[in-house]
Structure formats: structure tokens, C-alpha cells
Design a protein around this nucleic acid. Structure first.
Lengths: 340, 340
DNA sequence: CCATCTCGGTTTAACGTAAAACCAGCATCT
DNA sequence: AGATGCTGGTTTTACGTTAAACCGAGATGG
């Protein structure tokens, strides 16, 4: 026997299909209690499951939100092995679900093909994580859907934004090190793209130095990629730098690599070098020593993103731009050098 | 202007909608090159995007495979923060995409609600990661879809299976420690459910001991959960055990915790305790010292899973049960105690 | 020379659902 | 008494696509 449809229910409950539809979707309270009861019995007995394809076709909506994350650069693979994205997605999914929406995950790499697949499924809205080439944003605009960009500084009224105050966060982290007596502070970071997150963190780093009367030295900015391997490599560079006693890494993944690299070179942490991370990923507790880091409560941010897009989809008032807070988590990777 | 439909294309190319459909889907080569060309031009000019809802409705298929992972126990949240699942999903998605399928991710917790949502969308097949209560499998059977279970020992001809030889893997790991002169070997593991993965690993551990003439001591089996925190806690228990010089953890996450716990207690690794993990997660390289572990190439396994279900959906011959291989990765957390 | 096949399509109908318009019967106002 | 509104529905139509059946013209076969 094929799956029961709304018509089968109608037949069994002796009403019209439209009444079944109305009752099931809680529209216009146009049904007597008795009718509702008959319908519900039929639904249960026939094991009715709504057909979302049909619903989506006729209503031109899907109750699905597409979530876009980058593909890895080398292989065309979801960047889920980056725990940052993984945690964010958990948060998004959770909030969407509680708002009655469903998540459809898609990676995006060089082509827009995957984005198209999303659009073929009639997404109600989109959440886009991370930074992409400009062409993608053009494509997003053309899809003309409610779209929330996370951690992106694209300037366009078409998009909603969720991000943290990267400048202030980097300022806070650098100041944390300065307050503990460090003056030789390196910045270990990913690629500096214009108009991006890292640029702003660099600005915060500079401001903290400048306010403390420490001169900025471009040689102390080590720029690579947001990976463990780059962190490990950066250790070699860091130890060449005279006068440096601390490193602020703009990602925990980089910091973890730096720790490993410094171990390899026989340096002690935090005695020889203090290290700060960024994100407060689970891994920051697992490395040795546990990382002092900037917590940006990724899970909460993801949930907020889900709530925001749900608000937009319900046509409720929602801010065009939202900013989340940041907080420093002290663990064991930073030495207090101040004289007692 | 609304999105162009197949009818608009038909009008513009001066053919019937059916011909457009046939050309676009490469069915029965029933179109002259010239017609194909005209259609393609129209498709490009009108920016046609297929409507999957309509397609799915009429063809009763979706080219989507549902991927089920557990929710966290405490909150109802995707267990994506477990890098094991994250990596597996990357692999699955990649393979599905290459086979022309799309992935729809869903968490499952206490209720079957989320599984129902999947079924409302007309999934073509399912991939189920991890172990659940029996009720879920009953529900899965009722959905009557091609279903691949990963790492599950449910015995039912209705399902396809993909797993590794857990007994042999644990045997290999334990033997690795024995070969390096260890005789006091603890097993630190998650919850031992009947008919589960861990039970088999326990069996492999026992067999290795027995073949080496080492007596099995139940006190040396520390069972908790597959978390960093349990590993950290287990350090206290481990250090109470007389004669123990090594621990085989059935997950890298546990091993990472154990390392942190032993550091806290001032023990050196591997000098005081050798530690082995399982999975070869990225984190196993990041901890200090880097973990010797059992690599189960999760990404490849995920890809294999995607390929397998695609084969089943194409009605090609596909094995009911597949087993993947395992390999030991030597790093710095195991001491060779054999006399030189 | 008639039957059959192939090519390049067309026509018809249907998938399951919901929006919109409609309607009968009764109660209520004025 | 006629207009109006409410209750509890029903009917009609449409969404975009594809499966299945059909068809005319020319080629092929015996």
C-alpha cells in the first residue's frame, strides 16, 4: 500500500481534503471538535505523513533554511573538520529546529553549483558562514532570499549580518597580555584579506600596543593560514624574533600548532613563551598547557543566527546587524611577568 | 518576474514542455541537436532553475539521502562537536555529491520526530551513524528505505552495514603495547552496551592479553563515556591501579582527557604511563605528547558509505556488510620498555 | 506494396497539497 | 423582513514536473 495522503484521510474521516489540510496546519479554526477528532484518528490509523514536496510546490516555501559553509581548498569537501564550523552548525540547527525550520547544509567551493542545488529546493532563507570570493555574493543577491551572513564584512543592504566586534576582541586579548607584563607580543594569524575579519583583529592588536606605548613592528605579524600546521611552522619564525615573549594567535587551531611547534623546539610554555588563542574551541582545553583564549561562544552565536533568520522569515522586526560578545578565558598558557 | 519554469522554456524554444524535460534530464535521446541548442539557449537566457519539489512530487524520489547522527544527551543538539561525526559526514557528503545525490542531515534524540521530518521529504535512502535505542530501528524498518548503518551491530537483513573489525582493531592495539614490553595494560572506554562496538573491542583486548599469557583483570577496565572529561577523570582511577604502565583508550577524545588528567597529577607521558588512542582524530596530533593511535580513516569510511548507498540506490550489486581496515599510527605517547 | 521500425517529437494525465472563492444554515441586528 | 455576519465546512483550481501513451513522416524489410 502506498503512503496515505490527505485524500485518504479525508475519505476515512468523511470530510473534504481541504478540511484535513486546514486542521493539520492549524489554519482558520474552522472545524468542530468532533471533526478534528475524527481526522486525528484517521491520521493515526493510516499513518499519514505529509508530503513536503507537494506542500512546498503549492505554497512556494519549504520551511528549510540553507546553511552554506566553505569547502576545503584542496579537496572539495565540507569544512566540517574545522570544529569552529561544526559547533556553529550545531547551534544553528538547534535554533532553527526550535523555530520550526529545517536545515539544509551545503558546501561552496570554486563554483556556485552547490548553491544552485540549494535554490532548486526552494529554500526560505540562507545562512552563510565565512568569507568567499565576491562572485558568490553576487550570486546570493540574485537568489533574492533572506540571507544572513556570519563573520563577513560585505557591505550591502541586501544582507543581514551577525558578527563579533573583532577589533575590540583583539584589543582585549592583546591588552590581556600587556597587563601581564608582556611587551614583545607577536600576532600569528591567517591570510589577511582586505575588508575581512583578520584585518580588524590586526587593527585591535595595533591599538592595544599603541595605547600601551609599545611600537608596532610588522616583523612580529606572522601571517599564514588558519591551520594547525601553520601554527607549528610559525614556531620556527617566532623563536627567531628578538624580544618576543608572547604570541596572540587569531585562532585556537593556530595556537595549538604553535604549542606543538614550540614543544618540538624544546621551549617551555608559558615560561619561555606565553600563547593566547581565539575561539575557545574544545581543543583549547585539550592541548598542553590548556590555552588561555578568547571565548566567542560559538554555539550561542549559531543559535542566535538561527533565531535571527527565523525572525526575518516570520517578517518580525530583526536587526540588520547584530554583534555578539566576547570574553577572555584564562587557563595555563599565559605567564604573569609582572614583578611581585 | 517569477522564476522561469519548464513551460517558459518550452515557449521560448518553441517545443513542448515534455521535450524540455527530456533534454534537461538526458532521457531517451529524442531531440535533434538543433532543438537541444535552442532549449539550452532559452535555459541560459531565462535563468531556468529546476524546481525539485515538483520533480520530487511527480517522480516520488528526491535524490536526497538522509544522514542521521545522534543528538547530545543533555541538550537536543547535533553531535557535531564530536569530530568523529564531523569528519565522517564530510566524507559522506563528498561521495554522495559525486554520485549525484544530496545529503540531508538530521539529529535523532529521544523521539523519532526528526526522523519523521526526513521521511516527509521523501528521502531516497538513509545513512545512520552510531547506536540508538531499539525503538529507532523499528521505526527505520517501517520507513522501508534503503538504509546503511555505520558502526552498528543490529542484526537484520533489512539493513546494510559498514563497520570495522572492532575485535581485531583492539587486538592489534593491545598487542602493540604488549610488543613494547607492557604487561599492565588498562582499558579506558565508554559505556559497554550489549551487542555494541565497545563489547567487541573489549573482546579483542582480552584475546591479546590471553595470547600473551597475561591474566585479565576486570579492575583494569575503566568504563565511562566517550568524552574528554571522562578521560581526565579516569586518570585518578588509573593511577590507583598497581602494576599498570599503559592505557588503551577506545577513543582519542578519552585519551586526550587521560593525558590532561595525568599531567594534572604530575605524571609524565610516556615515561610513567603509555597511552594509546583510537580513531586518529585531528586532535590526536594536537595533544602533548602526540598520541599513538589506531587510525580508522574516518573520512575514507564516510566516502565509502556514500558510495555504498549510491550503489544500492542505483540498484547495483552492493554488499550487505562491508568492513574497513585499520592501521596503527605511531607517535610519541607510547614508551618502548623492552630492554635494549 | 504493405508491414514494421525509428526519429523527433506532442498530448494527456497525474503527483499531494493549499489558496481562494464559495455556500448553506442559522443567529443577530435594525 | 431584509440585510448582515458567523460557523463549519466544500469546490475549484493551480503549483512545476514527468510517466505513459500516442502520432506522423520517412526509412527499411521481405
Amino acid at each position: 500500500m502506498a503512503r496515505a495522503t490527505i485524500k485518504d484521510i479525508a475519505l476515512a474521516a468523511n470530510v473534504s481534503p481541504m478540511t484535513v489540510s486546514n486542521v493539520l496546519n492549524g489554519r482558520r479554526a474552522k472545524a468542530s471538535d468532533e471533526t478534528v477528532e475524527r481526522i486525528m484518528v484517521a491520521v493515526r490509523e493510516l499513518g499519514y505523513r505529509p508530503n513536503m514536496s507537494a506542500r512546498s510546490l503549492v505554497s512556494n516555501a519549504s520551511r528549510m533554511v540553507g546553511v552554506v559553509i566553505p569547502f576545503t581548498e584542496t579537496q572539495n569537501q565540507l569544512l566540517l573538520d574545522n570544529p569552529f564550523y561544526a559547533e556553529m552548525i550545531s547551534g544553528i540547527e538547534s535554533a532553527l529546529r526550535q523555530n520550526g525550520y529545517y536545515m539544509m547544509l551545503s558546501g561552496v567551493g570554486e563554483s556556485n553549483a552547490q548553491l544552485d542545488t540549494l535554490s532548486h529546493w526552494n529554500m526560505d532563507g540562507l545562512i552563510v558562514l565565512g568569507v568567499y570570493r565576491e562572485g558568490l555574493y553576487q550570486h546570493l543577491r540574485e537568489l533574492d532570499l533572506p540571507t544572513l551572513l556570519i563573520d563577513s564584512y560585505i557591505d550591502d543592504a541586501h544582507f543581514h549580518h551577525l558578527r563579533l566586534d573583532d577589533e575590540a576582541a583583539a584589543y582585549a586579548a592583546t591588552s590581556h597580555l600587556i597587563a601581564r607584563g608582556h611587551t614583545g607580543i607577536a600576532l600569528v594569524t591567517g591570510v589577511i584579506r582586505t575588508s575581512g575579519v583578520i584585518e580588524r583583529r590586526l587593527a585591535g592588536y595595533k591599538r592595544a600596543l599603541s595605547e600601551a606605548g609599545i611600537g608596532f613592528d610588522a616583523a612580529r605579524v606572522l601571517s599564514g593560514s588558519v591551520t594547525f600546521d601553520w601554527g607549528a611552522e610559525a614556531a620556527d619564525r617566532l623563536t627567531q624574533l628578538p624580544g618576543v615573549t608572547a604570541a596572540f594567535c587569531t585562532a585556537d587551531l593556530i595556537a595549538a600548532g604553535l604549542l606543538a611547534g614550540l614543544h618540538r623546539l624544546g621551549r617551555r610554555i608559558p615560561e619561555d613563551y606565553s600563547v593566547m588563542g581565539f575561539d575557545n574551541l574544545p581543543v583549547s582545553r585539550m592541548v598542553y598547557p590548556a590555552l588561555t583564549t578568547v571565548d566567542q561562544s560559538i554555539l550561542e552565536k549559531g543559535k542566535l543566527a538561527g533565531d535571527l533568520i527565523a525572525r526575518v522569515l516570520r517578517k518580525e522586526a530583526a536587526p540588520r546587524e547584530s554583534t555578539t560578545d566576547v570574553r577572555i578565558v584564562e587557563r595555563d598558557s599565559v605567564l604573569d611577568r609582572r614583578p611581585k
